[in-house]
Structures are given as C-alpha cells and as structure tokens.
Write a protein that binds this DNA or RNA. Structure first.
Lengths: 105, 105
DNA sequence: TATGGTTACGGATGCCGTAAACATC
DNA sequence: GATGTTTACGGCATCCGTAACCATA
C-alpha cells in the first residue's frame, strides 16, 4: 500500500470517474485503473463497482475511503512537519488557543 | 511513501540496527539501507544517524516515528476490516460496552 | 454507436540480493 | 582487524503510456 494508490482511489471516489480522476491527476486512465486494481488485489476486495458508464463505491469502498483519507492526512502532516523543519514546540500558525489538537498529535 | 518503507524504518528504530532489522524482516541489509534512504530522500531529511557501529534516531526521526506507527496502525486496521469482511455493525470481540471507539472508526 | 474502463504490450524505471568498498570502534 | 553500513552492479519485476479491446447506455 502506498500513498499514490490512496491518492488515486480518493480522487476516483471524488469524481466517480476513472477518466476524470486521471485527468485531474495528470496520469493516463489505464494507470489509474492499474493502481486501483493493485490496491483492490492487496486488500482482497472490490472498492468500486464499474459498469462502463458509471462508477460507484462498494460498501468496502466507503469504509476504506475513510481510512485512505486519514492515512493521507497523516502522511501529509508528517511531510509538512519534516520538510518545514518544525521543531515539536514551534507549531505553525495555530488559530485559537486549543491545547489539544483534534485527532492526531 | 509506502507501508514497506515505514515498516522497515520502525523496525530499525526498534532495533537500532540495520542488520538486526534486516534479519527480523527477512530481507537483506542493503535492502533496508536502500529503503530507509529512499524514505529520507522523499522526506528531505535524515531520520537516522549512522556511525558504522551505532544507529540512533535524529529529532526528525523521533517525530516521524510517531507518524509512521500511526499510519501503519491505520493501514493495518483498514486491511483487517476489509479482509475479514466485517460489516460496520458486526465488530469483533469487543470487551466492555463502550459505544464509541477510542480513536478510529 | 459512442463513451468509458480494461487488457495487451513494450520500453523504461526501480527493486532486491550478492559482492566489494568503506568507516569506526 | 572486526563489525556494520553504504555503494556498485546485474537480473528480475514492476510501472507507465499507447493502442487495441470490450461492455453498456
């Protein structure tokens, strides 16, 4: 499992279209198809129902979409944290004065 | 970024040794070295300090370790959820009667 | 029949392991 | 000098894009 696959799945789920997702992601349509299939194979279940004209999420797809978004969010936080060389005590531009963050540290 | 890289990093961080991590993961030592380096390149910073005899985490490494564990945990939950074909209402062996789960759905 | 997803296929890239080189204790 | 990591390198697998195929509305 990798962030590329998750990105593609999230995009397809948002667009409900492989071709539009491919366009938005600047890759070819077969590439999206390949990677979604690889993800489905790894997970051992279908995430999407294709009927040549329409795409919709399976129940598993809905469930996994939440995880995918959470994982991508975590990965993005980690990258921002390290790439911007933030130190643990120098949080960036925190609006409001909450002492605990919502979900992840 | 992928779960393999994260797995290897977490293992190296646990063992504080590339060779022991490689042994535990049943891959060669250079493979671990390659993947950790790829991860560091992608993140744009060093996660580990190598001194040929000892390995220790950088500050960035400590920070990233938490994210890595969280991401791997999420990925594992997602896989368990889908591979075991659990339906949302048929949670497995829940001890106690909590109505909300602790962190993730 | 037209649209949209999948499969086939070829070239390029990447990955892993063996072997050699390198660095520290 | 011994231990442990990195670099070099070669074979194999994987990935991506073009093109062809296929299925549905």
């Amino acid at each position: 499992m990798n962030t590329m696959q998750l990105n593609r799945f999230v995009e397809v789920a948002a667009q409900l279209s492989f071709s539009k997702a491919a366009e938005a992601l600047h890759v070819s349509q077969p590439t999206v198809s390949h990677q979604i299939k690889a993800l489905e194979d790894e997970l051992g279940c279908a995430l999407l129902v294709r009927s040549t004209r329409t795409v919709r999420l399976t129940d598993d797809g809905f469930a996994f979409l939440e995880y995918a978004n959470d994982i991508l969010d975590l990965a993005a936080r980690a990258e921002r944290r390290l790439k911007h060389k933030q130190r643990p005590n120098s949080q960036q531009l925190r609006i409001g004065a909450q002492h605990k963050r919502a979900t992840y540290p």
